[in-house]
């Protein structure tokens, strides 16, 4: 597939890459969890990480904002390398990279509003009033204006994840990393979170998302990256990898997922055969 490499190399041109990772390695407990991973994403692009459990998707996402420092490799934001030894630079960098976790990680002692507001006050230095206005606006954006005073203990999983998204958006990130944002949700709650993510993508947000929601992400993604054993083993547009007649590992993996989950409501099996 020569067109794939052409697309990939065009994207690594420094001009349009917002976030770029070069040669990431990570070893955990004696296992090579990331094995020379390169990645580059342009403004407004959506890349989706798929692959079996344990492939290293979460590790990659956490290395991308140094929540887990890679053993070696370079991370560049808008062409500038991030110096992980400078705490100040690291904090400034992380503000610009929003992160969404599988298990939400809301601050349990703070209301939805306070969850969104706290970093605006403590990190961005906004006044309480400004921060509150912004937080209300972000909660409204994810459809939770009327839940602002509720605490995580009283929110559903889908609502918690939407608060987490609002919290990340309030920091005006240049790129968002999403680690299986719907995997911890009951099936009936997945839709409301996917709808918010779709809105974000359509609004031009740059995103890297690990997910098992194949058909949903096929409809959003510019590129699928298939990971296995710490490497990106295939990449390409969803149509190329999942299209009729494709013999890609991505295709085989997606077919297996949709078979297992019977992703009927989502129509994954259908779209896998595009």
């Amino acid at each position: 597939m020569p067109d794939l490499t052409a697309a990939a190399s065009a994207e690594t041109a420094p001009s349009d890459a917002i976030l770029e990772a070069r040669g990431l390695f990570k070893t955990l407990g004696g296992n090579r969890v990331l094995d020379s991973v390169d990645l580059s994403i342009g403004r407004g692009r959506v890349k989706v990480l798929i692959g079996p459990s344990g492939a290293g998707k979460s590790t990659l996402l956490q290395c991308l904002n140094f929540l887990m420092p890679p053993d070696s490799g370079h991370i560049l934001l808008e062409g500038r390398e991030v110096d992980k030894r400078s705490k100040k630079e690291l904090c400034a960098f992380r503000q610009q990279v929003g992160m969404i976790f599988q298990d939400f990680n809301l601050f349990d002692h703070l209301s939805a509003l306070e969850n969104v507001r706290v970093a605006l006050i403590k990190v961005k230095g906004l006044s309480k009033l400004e921060a509150t206005e912004r937080a209300v606006a972000e909660l409204a954006r994810v459809g939770l204006k009327d839940k602002a005073t509720l605490y995580p203990a009283n929110l559903s999983g889908g609502q918690k994840q939407r608060v987490a998204i609002a919290r990340a958006l309030a920091m005006d990130p240049k790129v968002m990393l999403l680690d299986e944002p719907t995997s911890a949700l009951d099936p009936e709650l997945i839709g409301e979170v996917l709808a918010v993510i779709r809105d974000l993508a359509q609004g031009g947000m740059t995103m890297i998302m690990a997910t098992h929601q194949i058909s949903f992400s096929a409809s959003l993604a510019d590129e699928f990256l298939f990971m296995d054993k710490g490497r990106v083993v295939e990449h390409g547009s969803p149509a190329e990898l999942l299209g009729r007649g494709s013999s890609s590992r991505t295709q085989a993996f997606c077919a297996k997922i949709s078979e297992l989950t019977g992703e009927a409501g989502d129509g994954a099996a259908g779209e896998c055969r595009l």
Partner: peptide, 28 residues
Amino acid sequence: SIKRGQIRAALALGMTTRQAVLNIVLPQ
């Protein structure tokens, strides 16, 4: 008893470890 994930979330928002401990972990 406070899950490490909340610290990671705080760091991901740009807080320093100190801010995360003071504002997120200690109150809980």
